[in-house]
């Protein structure tokens, strides 16, 4: 019998606040753009590519950075053993609106490349050398049932051993990310990885 997957950590980013495993770890006033840049400054590591990213990528990138900080995740798993399964409601509409304005005045390739929601998976993969299974789904609301079913299937079929899954959504000033680190085993604060726990953590105010 295979070991049951657990949630070893979860990170919630909602306007102007960040929570890790339910505990607030950072807050800063200002617009979405300012808040995301301040979070990057706070994390204090050099990654100049961050400034090229659109806000959806920045949001997902930072949530994963916080989720994996100090965990030596890349030492525990080979490149292809970590999956990335993300979802949201607005796809890439936030940057679509910005790109759309450049169409008639010299279309911007630097913006166009971000007009696909799965680019956030690409940015996270480049940073952490994740080469495993990945998928981007669009839902009206976070769907813990689907997420648990899909990710459990990938683990059961031995396609991955760990997964970062959840929700990364932004449209203008309205943003929310809740990402879960799923592993077979996991740390001391582990919770069973199932639909109930995903939905419960998503609905609780502090992640």
């Amino acid at each position: 019998m295979q070991p049951v997957p657990n949630i070893s950590a979860y990170c919630l980013i909602s306007p102007n606040k960040i929570f890790l495993d339910g505990q607030i770890i950072f807050e800063h006033p200002g617009s979405a753009g300012i808040f995301l840049d301040k979070t990057y400054d706070h994390l204090d590591f050099p990654y100049p590519k961050f400034y090229k990213m659109d806000n959806l990528c920045k949001l997902g990138f930072l949530a994963v950075e916080i989720l994996l900080k100090g965990r030596s995740h890349e030492k525990k798993y080979s490149d292809s053993e970590t999956g990335l399964v993300l979802s949201n409601s607005h796809a890439s509409l936030d940057v679509d609106l910005k790109y759309s304005k450049t169409i008639h005045s010299g279309a911007s390739p630097a913006l166009f490349v971000y007009t696909l929601p799965n680019i956030v998976i690409g940015e996270i993969s480049i940073r952490h050398h994740f080469k495993g299974e990945n998928a981007f789904f669009v839902f009206k609301h976070f769907d813990g049932n689907f997420m648990a079913e899909y990710v459990s299937g990938l683990i059961e079929n031995k396609l991955i051993k760990s997964c970062i899954c959840g929700w990364v959504d932004i449209l203008k000033e309205d943003y929310r990310a809740i990402l879960f680190l799923v592993e077979t085993g996991g740390g001391e604060n582990k919770l069973p990885f199932n639909a109930d726990n995903l939905n419960k953590l998503n609905e609780s105010e502090h992640g």
Binding site: S80, L84, I119, G122, I126, H129, K131, E133, N134, A135
Partner: peptide
């Protein structure tokens, strides 16, 4: 199966190793 190059957001892998995977 699905994989990611973990190399570049708008250019394909230089080696093809990830599609091979």
């Amino acid at each position: 199966s699905v994989s990611n190059d973990a190399n570049h957001i708008s250019g394909p892998s230089r080696t093809g190793e990830e599609l091979f995977l």
